[in-house]
Design a protein around this nucleic acid. Structure first.
Lengths: 337, 337
DNA sequence: TTGAAAGCGGTACCAG
DNA sequence: CTGGTACCGCTTTCAA
């Protein structure tokens, strides 16, 4: 059995109150008394029980983060940035990945009972569920998810780069643009799709360009490859687009690979772009949009900490900049050359 | 103030014992009594305090995982695999990334006070620190780290693939082989280096091959690039190796990129291999060794759960298979052609 | 400077 | 089937 504070007290010949004080330098304890207590604690190999302490202090000294999935470099980097800042502030980190589990909300409710505050990322639980947490007094920061009322939020600036990307595609000579992704699956994707449409709106109106949505289920390379295969199969009935703007890099990489394997030249015949700027994008020469993944997580951790410690009460909404990175997959379109 | 079990009891006109039973379907409670309790709990928006419950039950229902770093696809996938299995078994997951922090052991000690068991990965804390945890009764599973006494462990089979890789390099015509990595930095790297030496031992003895260690600090692309630059600069004094066997993919990718930029042909002049089979390796055509990252994490979670629940007491040591994946970066060496 | 005792919010045993 | 009550291990008044 692990020793308790009472064992230490008895061993040192003092009361448990004194042990508690001595162990945390709180209150006043005579020097030699403290020494005796520390000695006893050492001998018994005593570590105070976190549960007892937390129950008495009524706090967890832990923060949670809820995200849809950890696969792929994006979420991992975000969580990394989060953990780094949280650890710096001496708060433990509880992670919960919902990946589409049906009981996600229950799991989040459960998580909420174990921490002093939490970051809720993207498409994990409903707005209602979030508000329920907040109404119960739980500090919450939304990450990669549009603000809900006065709840703090941290987002990457999807729109600006989506517009820039759309213009870039036009400038490279694209006329028939397809967006690959599921806007309903994530608020980020929603913004990218809508930004792209805005960028092409004028050209569309003049009949100089078209922009279509290729809605897909997943986010992985295999999904991208499937989109490419479908497009290739139906190319008699429906010509290939000039440009595929994909919701993330994995989609784009899978798609591009399949096109190349079918001898469809990228970028000579079709332009392709992704989103995130993962490592593979660099090696594949993929045009993409870089977002500050670590900073997203770190900023969320910082905002949450301010909320938990009560250092700040007025809400904040952070928008972190993104950057268009052009590479070989969108070099000038033949029509332009 | 959050309602407590006493509030609910009062509201429902029963004792707290009955509330406790009703809320957890334990013991026997009359149907209508239960209904009344649930109703009261609902009305008060009551959620039992995790702390109170855990203190009484003397368990956390949470597991920890300690890893060196979360950057790069490798650790992220491992943690993902871990979280998936843990969640399935209704255990929360506490993560702690030590990345070389000086107070890593203290952080781990702290983590230990918050969970019922933990997975300790690679080069994070000393063997002594691990044994201290175990001696205090904490269930521990080692991951990507050689066994310590009877402590459970889960490892990828580095040696077999390291030998296969060495033989492959010889078969492709390499004679001067360099291993890039820091064996002291991680047990995995140590095994890869030693397996490679074994594979080349015979050829070495006959004077048909040499194998050198290029010791480096980091694990990233930049480190790999620096190795390439140094090798290129000193090529008058010391000819370039025929093959660079790198401790992981990031090193290999950075190195290969720099070689190519300097017009050193890969694989025609130099062969390059990595380790892990991250996504970028596929797009860069890098020969590498695939390890079951998710399964590593998942297996560790399973073993730990068995320990925590007491379902198993005799120690286990799992060795998961790896697989050599040959790609363009090691296609036949010119000398062979 | 120290100790006694009242919580913190539950669980579980023992009577009734 | 239900209530009373003794913990679980610590923090924190309040007195001495």
């Amino acid at each position: 059995m692990r020793p308790t504070i009472r064992d230490v007290a008895q061993h040192a010949g003092v009361s448990i109150a004194t042990v508690s004080r001595a162990l945390r330098d709180s209150g006043s304890v005579r020097k030699d008394t403290r020494a005796r207590v520390l000695e006893a604690a050492e001998q018994l190999n005593f570590t105070p029980s976190r549960l007892g302490r937390q129950l008495a202090e009524r706090r967890h000294a832990a923060n949670g983060i809820v995200f849809p999935d950890l696969s792929g470099p994006y979420y991992a980097e975000v969580v990394l940035g989060y953990e780094a800042v949280a650890a710096e502030r001496e708060r433990s980190v509880l992670i919960l990945s919902t990946h589409g589990r049906a009981n996600a909300e229950a799991m989040v409710e459960d998580l909420a009972t174990r921490c002093d505050g939490m970051v809720v990322m993207g498409r994990t639980i409903s707005d209602d569920a979030v508000e329920r947490l907040v109404s119960r007094g739980m500090p919450v920061v939304l990450l990669a998810r549009p603000p809900i009322g006065d709840i703090d939020s941290v987002n990457a600036d999807n729109r600006t780069s989506a517009v820039a990307l759309g213009r870039h595609m036009l400038a490279q000579g694209a006329r028939r643009v397809a967006f690959v992704g599921d806007p309903a699956a994530s608020p980020d994707v929603q913004e990218r799709w809508s930004g792209l449409q805005d960028a092409l709106a004028e050209a569309s109106a003049k009949g100089e360009a078209t922009v279509d949505l290729v809605s897909v289920q997943g986010f992985g390379e295999e999904t991208g490859a499937a989109v490419a295969r479908r497009a290739l199969e139906s190319r008699n009935r429906r010509p290939l687009p000039d440009a595929f703007v994909c919701a993330n890099d994995e989609l784009a990489l899978g798609l591009m690979d399949t096109l190349l394997a079918a001898d469809v030249a990228v970028p000579d015949r079709v332009l392709v772009s992704g989103w995130d700027d993962v490592m593979a994008a660099r090696y594949a020469g993929l045009t993409t949009v870089r977002q500050p993944m670590r900073a997203l997580g770190g900023t969320a951790a910082r905002l949450l900490d301010e909320l938990v410690t009560g250092a700040r009460t007025e809400p904040r909404h952070e928008l972190l900049p993104t950057e268009l990175v052009t590479r070989a997959s969108t070099s000038p379109h033949p029509a332009q050359k």
